[in-house]
Design a protein around this nucleic acid. Structure first.
Lengths: 162, 162
DNA sequence: CCGAGCAAGTTGAGAGTTCAACCAGTAGAC
DNA sequence: GTCTACTGGTTGAACTCTCAACTTGCTCGG
């Protein structure tokens, strides 16, 4: 195993702060939604994506793709959302293997009820604390990182144990 | 429920990108560590913190505080790490309620084996993709967000249903 | 000393995620 | 047509995290 390029002290500082913020922010958002609307953040996002889709309806795999979620995760999640009456499954007419997830009226109502509190939380936690330049920077930084993650899913040159 | 200040289109874009990056990066880091070193990222971080502590030993609550983790979570995690032989629990001599978590030699070795791959992943996923200014910005932005999250743990003015 | 209250940790149940295995249905090659 | 390979989606077990009890021990006013 070759020595990797270790992080400088400054980089370590940034990484620690970043990772801590990541965890704390995730917890914060999750707790707010769970407390006020009885749903985890990931489920909220599923409802959001469905609400924007034509006829509030999407194939499972499209939904998974748009959310960056695994098929399995989505399947479990939709099962739960279906049990709550917020989503319905329907057969796909053009491909008998497929399933369609449809947002119900109850689901739309739940989303509408959850949205204001969620947006307020996002605003207070993030946008109200950053300057316009920082917001712009955050967008670019996020895009740059995401760009390197999205395509491959697997690590480039990191597999040479032995 | 008053109308919240909704996000502008630009803010929504940033938020979506940011959140997507958050999830993808977390998955990426977790998967790498799980695959190459059979531990989730949160456990890796516990080992790191312990390895920096005097005598590689910390009170459970200190460890939880340093990691921003709940007592319960840490207790479960240490139980698991203990079963793997990477950490040991000891009684606290000054407070019989307390527990000390101690990093074992095996734990230190596991950490040493995991570190290079982890650092390489961090470098490739984040630091190699950002300019020095962006790295600095990321640190400041993270600190600003964290700053608003750390103290209260509860939402400021977001509880007025009815 | 004693009791009330608080702090440190653990535990168990419930919920979400992952991974690997698994059906079913589609698509191409022949 | 049929055989094979692949895709869409589900399922079950193992694992982690959360939340709410619960146990134990410390602390401090009386």
């Amino acid at each position: 195993m070759d020595e990797p390029r270790w992080l400088t002290d400054a980089e370590q500082d940034v990484w620690r702060t970043f990772v801590t913020m990541l965890g704390a922010l995730g917890d914060h958002m999750d707790r707010q939604l769970q407390r006020d609307s009885s749903m985890p953040y990931t489920y909220y996002e599923i409802l959001v994506v469905l609400s924007h889709a034509p006829n509030r309806m999407l194939r499972m795999s499209e939904l998974a793709g748009l959310r960056g979620s695994s098929r399995s995760r989505l399947s479990h999640a939709v099962a739960r959302l279906e049990a709550q009456g917020w989503v319905e499954r329907r057969e796909c007419p053009t491909d008998k293997r497929g399933s369609l997830a449809v947002l119900t009226d109850a689901g739309f109502a739940a989303l509408a009820a959850a949205a204001p509190g969620h947006v307020t939380t996002v605003r207070e936690a993030v946008f109200d604390r950053l300057s316009p330049e920082q917001v712009r920077d955050l967008g670019r930084i996020s895009a740059a990182i995401l760009d390197g993650l999205d395509p491959d899913k697997t690590l480039p040159g990191c597999r040479e144990l032995g």
